[in-house]
Computed example of a mutant assay.
Amino acid sequence: MAFQNPSREEIKRILEQSNTIAVVGLSDKPERTSYMVSEAMQAKGYRIIPVNPNADSILGEKSYPSLKDIPEKVDLVNVFRRSEHTPEVAEEAAAIGASAIWLQLGVYNEVTAEIAGRGGLQVIMDRCIKVEDSILLPHGKSKK
């Protein structure tokens, strides 16, 4: 059976319950989509943790070389990597106990969905987290 993204209500719940988002492939270049999307999510109230082995800090946050190097709990892993590189990210996301993995617009991999599903993660693929958040939580993230 082909992968299907969760319902809009389930995606809304995932966003509402996610406070800390690790962004794999977050660029330190402001003109890159990963930077713009992450900056917007940070402005909406999410804690952004950059995962980029080539940067010390991005968006005012310490950058880590991999998910396993992050010393705190991550709720959601947002991925800005090519589709063929995402299975390894799903394995790491499951290993650190994230609740969900989100593959950005244009990123889709059935193997990644299987790995993440086996690891107990919710999976969203080929969707922009900024667009979904703007539609589903237009007034910003409610503080718990």
Score class of each variant (00 low, 15 high):
residue 62 K to W: 06
residue 126 D to N: 15
residue 64 Y to S: 04
residue 33 T to H: 10
residue 90 A to M: 06
residue 111 V to D: 14
residue 55 A to Q: 11
residue 124 I to R: 02
residue 66 S to N: 11
residue 69 D to L: 08
residue 118 R to V: 08
residue 134 S to K: 11
residue 119 G to L: 10
residue 77 V to K: 05
residue 43 A to D: 15
residue 1 M to Y: 11
residue 99 S to E: 13
residue 142 S to T: 12
residue 28 D to H: 15
residue 126 D to A: 12
residue 144 K to Y: 14
residue 72 E to D: 08
residue 99 S to A: 10
residue 122 Q to R: 10
residue 104 Q to I: 09
residue 22 A to V: 00
residue 127 R to A: 09
residue 93 A to V: 00
residue 91 E to L: 11
residue 23 V to D: 08
residue 8 R to F: 10
residue 111 V to Q: 15
residue 37 V to E: 05
residue 19 N to Y: 11
residue 109 N to Y: 13
residue 93 A to C: 04
residue 84 E to H: 12
residue 55 A to T: 10
residue 126 D to W: 06
residue 92 E to A: 14
residue 72 E to C: 13
residue 24 V to R: 05
residue 128 C to A: 05
residue 3 F to E: 01
residue 92 E to L: 04
residue 79 V to S: 11
residue 5 N to I: 05
residue 134 S to E: 15
residue 121 L to G: 07
residue 110 E to W: 00
residue 108 Y to L: 15
residue 49 I to Q: 07
residue 110 E to F: 02
residue 84 E to L: 07
residue 116 A to P: 01
residue 102 W to T: 01
residue 116 A to H: 02
residue 6 P to Y: 02
residue 84 E to P: 03
residue 28 D to T: 07
residue 122 Q to W: 08
residue 109 N to A: 03
residue 4 Q to A: 14
residue 78 N to K: 08
residue 45 G to R: 02
residue 74 V to K: 08
residue 129 I to E: 12
residue 15 L to Q: 07
residue 79 V to P: 13
residue 92 E to S: 14
residue 134 S to C: 12
residue 120 G to T: 03
residue 86 T to D: 09
residue 59 L to W: 06
residue 134 S to R: 12
residue 89 V to A: 08
residue 80 F to I: 03
residue 21 I to M: 08
residue 88 E to L: 11
residue 85 H to E: 14
residue 15 L to T: 01
residue 106 G to T: 02
residue 77 V to I: 04
residue 93 A to R: 00
residue 134 S to T: 08
residue 42 Q to A: 06
residue 48 I to S: 02
residue 47 R to S: 11
residue 110 E to R: 00
residue 127 R to S: 12
residue 35 Y to G: 02
residue 38 S to G: 04
residue 62 K to F: 07
residue 123 V to Y: 00
residue 82 R to C: 11
residue 49 I to D: 13
residue 114 E to I: 14
residue 22 A to L: 01
residue 81 R to E: 06
residue 8 R to D: 15
residue 70 I to R: 13
residue 142 S to M: 13
residue 58 I to N: 09
residue 96 I to C: 07
